[in-house]
Write a protein that binds this DNA or RNA. Structure first.
Lengths: 195, 195
DNA sequence: CGTCGAATTGATGTCATTCAACTACAGTGG
DNA sequence: CCACTGTAGTTGAATGACATCAATTCGACG
């Protein structure tokens, strides 16, 4: 749980010894590529800190097509807040794109963190604000940018994911078909040779 | 500041007397239809609680077209978190769709709230989670739903806004042109007569 | 080497945009 | 009170962006 420890110290303001205590009772779970941590209809009772690997959260639309809401590589937290905090069955699936090791985070654990660390809540709120800000940016792009612009933004924001996520999933994240993404990439390649 | 008082009591867990004390030093500001509370390039140093009226937050894309990120009617809070919490110049405009009365909320005020109310932070985090959940839903719709489906979702979610927001702004919120929305409305009207 | 899913490519279709004309209506000034 | 003006909304025709369907090609893996 190396990454999780560092995360607790750097992002949430805990001391090394606090982290050691807290993690005594914690275990990691490793799941295979393609396995699910959450399926539509279930109530999501945990968030998942990604220690190693890569998760994807997606929904199905009316036609049964997958739409990726977010990718969660190392050091990210996945989970459906709607389901966790409002106790509703989730609309989402969370599965592993690669073999992935996660740490389960439940409410009691968060309460513990708030108890031992004075500025845990401040830092946690910071993370929430950051999440909102990223979502807002994404909404803005979906409203006003072309598929090509959204793709360029994606490779700038997540250059490391480019190599790890299959292209058809990136298309799904961008809100287009795999065929369209293929053509966009071709057009970009042509432009770059011309320029 | 009636609505703001009720908000502080009901949503953020303060007592009536706490609210009275806190609001002694607070003033409202009323702005005209079309006036701005935030413009692109400025650093957003406050959030705005809407006591009366209706705000809209929007961004400009590469072509200079407006795209509405959110509407904020009574009891909502508007503001650009990216700018507030990360101290960056904002990408957004916030202006008034109607004459609007707002209460300015800055960080010192929030700190005060956290001091006097034990469960302010818990309730505030709840609001943040709720915001994230709504944004996620919107992303999902933009990825996988047709313009018609998004419009139906909009009128279900914000039936009261239908009468107050000009149609071209709703189109902007949905990510389509005013002409397209006009046609969608016509098609729906035809369907309902047929059915 | 053969198989299966991923990616590319081409032909065609659909939905929304663009541009333009026109109607309806509110606000302004004579 | 009426003409003048500007903005919102509607409608039509042409265009454009992305989707769909179908046919290959590519590449990983048993």
């Amino acid at each position: 749980m190396k990454r999780f420890s560092v995360f607790l110290e750097d992002k949430l303001g805990l001391t090394t010894s606090q982290v050691e205590d807290l993690l005594l009772s914690k275990q990691t779970k490793t799941i295979n590529k393609g396995d699910f941590l959450l399926e539509q209809g279930q109530i999501c009772s945990h968030s998942f800190f990604v220690e190693e690997g890569l998760l994807r959260m997606y929904a199905l639309n009316n036609d049964g097509k997958e739409h990726v809401v977010q990718f969660s590589p190392e050091n990210w937290i996945a989970g459906d807040r709607g389901s966790i905090y409002f106790n509703e069955p989730s609309n989402y699936f969370i599965d592993a794109i690669e073999e992935t090791t996660v740490v389960f985070i439940d409410q009691p654990f968060l309460d513990q963190l708030a108890l031992v660390s004075p500025d845990f809540r401040t830092k946690n709120e910071f993370l929430l604000h950051n999440h909102i800000r990223h979502q807002q940016k994404r909404i803005q792009l979906l409203l006003g940018a072309t598929a090509e612009e959204r793709y360029l933004d994606f490779i700038q924001l997540y250059p490391n994911l480019l190599l790890r996520v299959p292209q058809w999933m990136i298309a799904s994240y961008l809100g287009i078909t795999p065929e369209s993404l293929s053509r966009i990439r071709k057009a970009l390649a042509d432009k770059n040779f011309a320029g």
